[in-house]
């Protein structure tokens, strides 16, 4: 079953003094996320990521279209008990301690009193806040608040977790812990939909990514496909303090780094390049095909619409992915 089915969801706001001018925040969005999937929603600031999440959480209302979460309509109150949400830069009731806050959210989520306290302690431990559990949140740092946010999002053991910029405000250690947490959620069979503009996080964690820009979904793809495609070039690394002349004549782009050379040559010149190394008696370290990166895909999709349209026309792989995504 699909965890999320977004069916032409659209949002525009009336702006200006007389509220007559329409500002489009999200163009009709059609997207399907399967259960158990970790989906990364990528895009620059102001692209429409948070608007999409707010629409799915019922915090703003769509201008057109609808969505189904875990097979139920958005306005079905049952949906919320199976969903967890971490807003971007979360702010909580700072008169409460972390323990009190989680207990309050547990009550609102309909968690039975029996076992709630134990679950709260378990969540505090999971995000590394056991020692500060009794401290009022007004004394928490930004990173600690983000951890509280993560704890409240998974407190009631939801099937589906929405995370809006979960790595925001975290130090490298904290980011790593969040990555581990998302991995654990995946292992537990949860569906995770998270927005980010940090591509390395998406590449490391996501099964699929969607690129959104200026309120428009520009592309959807499986990360494994995007990063496995070779680009007709190979990277050869070998021991040498100079670039052999024979290699340069093959059209290699080479740079020397200490006593190693890193050279990129066209795939059809691979054998000839190796022959040069053999002839010069140079020791080979590695030879790997140059693969596409998520960053390249991202940048390609963020190009102006006309260029993007041309790219889409040529991109059969992307079409296949979009079919799979129901786009």
């Amino acid at each position: 079953m699909a965890a999320i089915e977004i069916l032409d969801l659209e949002k525009s706001y009336l702006v200006g003094f007389w509220r007559k001018r329409q500002k489009l925040a999200l163009r009709p969005l059609r997207l399907t996320i399967e259960e158990g999937e970790v989906f990364g929603f990528l895009g620059p600031n102001g692209a429409g990521k948070t608007t999409t999440l707010k629409l799915l959480m019922g915090l703003v209302f769509p201008t057109a279209g609808t969505a189904r979460i875990l097979g139920k309509n958005l306005d079905d109150p049952e949906v919320k008990s199976q969903v967890g949400f971490l807003p971007e830069q979360p702010y909580f009731y700072d008169h409460l301690s972390a323990r009190e806050l989680l207990n309050y959210y547990g009550q609102l989520s309909g968690m039975p009193a029996k076992g709630r306290s134990a679950r709260v302690e378990q969540m505090l431990a999971r995000v590394g806040l056991s020692d500060s559990a009794g401290l009022q949140l007004r004394k928490f740092s930004k990173g600690m608040l983000q951890r509280v946010g993560l704890a409240q999002a998974i407190l009631h053991d939801p099937k589906l977790v929405f995370l809006d910029e979960p790595m925001s405000g975290l130090d490298p250690m904290g980011r790593r812990e969040v990555r581990d947490l998302i991995q654990q959620l995946r292992n537990e069979g949860k569906t995770v939909f998270f927005s980010t503009h940090i591509l390395s996080d998406a590449e490391a964690l996501c099964d699929r990514v969607g690129i959104i820009h200026q309120g428009e979904l520009r592309g959807v793809g499986a990360v494994a496909d995007l990063t496995s495609e070779t680009r007709g070039k190979v990277e050869i690394i070998f021991y040498s303090q100079t670039v052999p002349v024979g290699l340069t004549s093959l059209g290699a782009e080479a740079r020397v780094s200490g006593d190693m050379v890193n050279a990129v040559v066209p795939e059809e010149q691979q054998d000839a390049a190796l022959e040069v190394l053999r002839r010069e008696r140079l020791r080979l370290i590695s030879l790997t095909p140059v693969r596409s990166s998520l960053e390249e895909y991202y940048i390609q999709k963020l190009q102006p619409a006309e260029a993007g349209d041309d790219a889409r026309a040529d991109d059969s792989r992307d079409k296949e992915n979009r079919k799979g995504a129901g786009v």
């Binding site: 109150p77 949400f85 702010y91 009731y93 009631h156």
Partner: peptide
């Protein structure tokens, strides 16, 4: 304004 409401309304609270 403080967005404390987001995490409340994302629960089964009408």
């Amino acid at each position: 304004d403080k967005r404390t409401l987001y995490t409340v309304l994302s629960r089964p609270v009408r």
